[in-house]
Design a protein around this nucleic acid. Sequence first.
DNA 1: TAAACAAATGCAATCGTTTGCGCAATTCGT
DNA 2: ACGAATTGCGCAAACGATTGCATTTGTTTA
Lengths: 379, 379
Amino acid sequence: MQSFAQFVFSLYLRTWFPISMTQHPTLVRVKKNVINMDDKQHMTMKDIARELGVSVATVSRALSDSPSISRERRQAIQQYAREHNYFPNVIAEQLRHSRRNPSRAIGVIVPELVHYYFSSILDGIESEASARGYHIIVAKSNESYEREVRICESMLKNKVCGIIVSQAKDTERYDHFMHLEAAGVPLVFYDRICPALNASRVVVDDYMGTMNAVSHLIETGCRRIAFYGAPMSMVIAKNRFNGYRDALYKKGLTLDESLVRICDNRADAERITPTMMQIENPPDAFFAVNDETAIGILSVVKRLGYSVPDEVSICGFTNGFRATVCDPMLTTVEQRGSQVGKEAADILIGLVEGTLPRDRAEKRIVKTRLVVRGTTRHP
Amino acid sequence: MQSFAQFVFSLYLRTWFPISMTQHPTLVRVKKNVINMDDKQHMTMKDIARELGVSVATVSRALSDSPSISRERRQAIQQYAREHNYFPNVIAEQLRHSRRNPSRAIGVIVPELVHYYFSSILDGIESEASARGYHIIVAKSNESYEREVRICESMLKNKVCGIIVSQAKDTERYDHFMHLEAAGVPLVFYDRICPALNASRVVVDDYMGTMNAVSHLIETGCRRIAFYGAPMSMVIAKNRFNGYRDALYKKGLTLDESLVRICDNRADAERITPTMMQIENPPDAFFAVNDETAIGILSVVKRLGYSVPDEVSICGFTNGFRATVCDPMLTTVEQRGSQVGKEAADILIGLVEGTLPRDRAEKRIVKTRLVVRGTTRHP
DNA sequence: TAAACAAATGCAATCGTTTGCGCAATTCGT
DNA sequence: ACGAATTGCGCAAACGATTGCATTTGTTTA
């Protein structure tokens, strides 16, 4: 790993000297007027300057490889810095540059953390961000408007360069977001979009995803397809329903409203489904807004003695951990959370670095993919 | 929500004025010498001072409610600040205090993000941290030593007040961690502990968790219990194995080494299990190091025509999403990731704030809980 | 030989806050 | 009414880095 530190160093004089973690340098200096022995801190330019008998300005210029410092001095200073594992104080750098340069911290607001889709998105954001030299500050809103506001304040105070956010469910006012925009902090929404704001966003192609899935059900012989969706106040719910409706329409089937239910979790699915299977002309397939709901349906349908997929087909949406655990494995629409996260980070960084115009909202749609497994028949 | 901003304000003069997100104040000031119209920035003490005809020092003291400023002036300044949504520049604050006060950013290093256990831990850390006024910077090591080192550097540069970390699998050198400690950044390990370092840590009670689970299997009539564990180089693997061994011993059973396998993922489980069921005296129960592996066993055993739990019992470890999705639902040891995260954050904050001594490693063990479901018989 | 020039370095202000110290103005005690 | 104590406020130096401008050298040119 020796070469690693050198590699990093060679990359940049601008980006500075990393601490070579694999050597044992005199990183730890004891404070001059020793008061607290535990008080450890690192070198500053002043230390280098004092030690080498030059001014701080010279050190600064030498370390930034300015040609106005003589070759020998420059190299001497650089070497001293490297040997003593000097690295610049980001706080000071930032204070100095706060008017021109944004920080490299991206704020990420997640409704919840223990959730497959959000984890994948976070993963995508982290990958893209760290690859481009940013780090992420993560906060979860717990689906609460109040916490969301507080988090926005905190992130503004902590000078993030931008925020990637999925709204909390009970957020219906958007002033906090507008304030952020007004304060010059760019915003990128994912998953749950703020309809009132014309902000940049990344969403998955709910419409086409659902349409393809439902078409698949029809093509494999299903004729009475139930739809379990989220409340229509959510944009994604509406899009998925439209996809369902249009798939039926395109295949010449009529939409039977008795087959449409608001249901987006397992408990509800287990409560509702028995009734659904007792109606006069029960469904021969289910499309569920997420895998969790689909699993609920599956467990009930199996318990009622139907065979899956022969008598009843089931299709979910997410393709999370659950999808390959149930028996039979779940056919589902892959939501590609990681890709959503990457796109969101890409937009945000573009906005921050100026490669994307701030006055126009960048909107991206991530394509979904139907993953056919055991809960639907093969064509 | 008007009352919210006021509520926050009333809480603290020290913690400062939040931006009232629900009003439309003159947060955005136009730069005096307008060059870039997009350049938005917020008030500083200097602005307040100029406007009210006092010195910056007075503003600072008034806002920190110092008694050395007269009541009227103090209130006037506070009111002006509140009305104009002044809030202090954390960067500047930090620079000033860098020698005494740590930042309020906690670094969190996770091997992966899309993973139930790590998500729960992250969730626990976030909850505890945000409740105590800290925020978290999250980075994933992707199980790579090199990335882990780089992340440590980056976090050190970004002045986190401490780091909570689970080692990458291929980390075998610990210099980077030692450097952090040396630089005064406290470290708390979770899940994967660094054996070479006597650092603070939070682990789950792998030994007792496994012992209880295996005892449960024995009490429900199982006699030949297979053990699928992780490589013994990992501490948790060893502890879990010991729990298994001692449970057998305590119940008067002998350990049959042909029933012990290194196997910690689904693919391996599906490969190994058919063979395992063909040995002369096949197991009547499996204990697996995690739910994923247990699910793999379950799917094979079911496919081979055994009934679960009547002929074969299965027990996992984690109690993640998967556990309630498989059929029958999985009996498993609940790992309480969220609690682990909370304890870790609690230790770290204690270390940072000085309520816990830095010279002694704080070690906590989170109790597990056996969750009996459908893959094992009831006593 | 003095003026002009280039190269190398230092001075000092700046970013936004905090804080020790000192200076005025007021109030107090005698 | 005069020195002492108190009160209220400002000056200026930090914190660690950057950068325009001035200064110090040494070299070249007229």
